[in-house]
Simulated scan of single mutants.
Amino acid sequence: MGRLTTHVLDAAHGCPGSSIAVQLYRVEGQQLTLVATALTNSDGRCDAPLLQGDDYRTGVYQLQFAAGDYYRAKSVQMPDQPFLDVVVLRFGISAEQDHYHVPLLLSPYSYSTYRGS
């Protein structure tokens, strides 16, 4: 059975992105339905898959990472309106049996992602 996992690496500090709030939404047309919430652990990972079992199905999903809150908590000086506050990643799951892993490499002014394994 498939599952969806994620983790965050803080490229600015060279460490895992710990205590970052993560929200997962299912996207259906213009409607977002909250499916899961999590907080990354000391390794930058969620303690359990964000999606698995009967809830895991094909479709469009959106992950949201509270990057601005994370960097404010680390006392990174940022403007009142940070360049990256909430990082939004919209992606599709097309195979119910596959493991989808969505890593986020993060800094206050950039991010990258890919489909991991």
Score class of each variant (00 low, 15 high):
residue 70 Y to F: 10
residue 11 A to R: 15
residue 64 Q to R: 14
residue 56 Y to L: 02
residue 12 A to C: 04
residue 29 G to P: 14
residue 53 G to F: 01
residue 80 D to W: 07
residue 95 A to K: 14
residue 46 C to K: 05
residue 38 A to P: 06
residue 5 T to M: 03
residue 85 D to P: 04
residue 47 D to G: 08
residue 46 C to W: 00
residue 9 L to A: 04
residue 3 R to S: 10
residue 35 V to Q: 11
residue 18 S to V: 03
residue 96 E to M: 01
residue 101 H to Q: 09
residue 108 P to Y: 00
residue 106 L to V: 09
residue 74 K to S: 02
residue 8 V to Y: 02
residue 77 Q to W: 03
residue 28 E to M: 08
residue 107 S to M: 03
residue 107 S to P: 14
residue 51 L to D: 12
residue 53 G to I: 01
residue 25 Y to L: 03
residue 43 D to Q: 14
residue 80 D to Y: 07
residue 43 D to S: 12
residue 40 T to K: 01
residue 49 P to T: 07
residue 111 Y to H: 09
residue 100 Y to C: 12
residue 108 P to R: 00
residue 87 V to K: 02
residue 44 G to V: 09
residue 33 T to Q: 12
residue 57 R to Y: 00
residue 84 L to E: 13
residue 14 G to C: 01
residue 5 T to P: 03
residue 76 V to R: 06
residue 109 Y to H: 14
residue 116 G to C: 06
residue 41 N to G: 02
residue 65 F to N: 09
residue 78 M to C: 07
residue 31 Q to Y: 02
residue 50 L to R: 04
residue 86 V to N: 08
residue 23 Q to E: 10
residue 51 L to C: 09
residue 9 L to S: 08
residue 65 F to A: 03
residue 19 S to E: 10
residue 86 V to D: 05
residue 10 D to Q: 03
residue 33 T to E: 11
residue 51 L to H: 09
residue 34 L to Y: 07
residue 14 G to A: 01
residue 71 Y to T: 10
residue 40 T to R: 01
residue 73 A to I: 04
residue 78 M to P: 09
residue 8 V to P: 01
residue 68 G to K: 12
residue 51 L to N: 11
residue 70 Y to G: 06
residue 90 R to E: 15
residue 69 D to N: 14
residue 62 Q to T: 13
residue 20 I to V: 15
residue 61 Y to R: 05
residue 49 P to K: 03
residue 29 G to D: 00
residue 52 Q to L: 00
residue 23 Q to G: 00
